[in-house]
């Protein structure tokens, strides 16, 4: 998977998070640490992040895959797989 694609996905995740929590500074996020430990997101906020990612990327993330979004790094890998597997846009 190419670097630019990962950068695009990383930017999309930040866009989704800052839409919910605008006070977040992306430079403060450690990409290998659990996101919800670093950002005060409750389950309602988290659902809104998923909805926003769906709007930006067109990927409907099933509830059973929420565990894949634990850290920023893992979320980028997961979204890259989903984009590459041909079911993006649905």
């Amino acid at each position: 998977m190419s670097g630019p694609d990962h950068d695009r996905l990383r930017a999309a995740i930040f866009e989704a998070i800052t839409a919910i929590a605008p006070e977040i500074d992306s430079a403060d996020i450690r990409s290998d640490q659990p996101l919800r430990q670093q950002i005060d997101l409750d389950s309602f906020d988290f659902l809104n992040v998923i909805i926003r990612l769906h709007e930006i990327l067109g990927i409907d993330i099933p509830e059973s895959d929420y565990g894949e979004l634990l850290t920023l790094d893992r979320a980028v890998e997961y979204l890259a797989r989903r984009c590459g597997s041909g079911d993006a846009g649905k």
């Binding site: 389950s43 309602f44 659902l47 909805i51 769906h54 409907d60 993330i61 509830e63 059973s64």
Partner: peptide, 17 residues
Amino acid sequence: LAAENAKRSVAERLLPA
């Protein structure tokens, strides 16, 4: 809830609350 949410689009999902 999981079965219900699997049928739903992301914007229509229910929280356990």
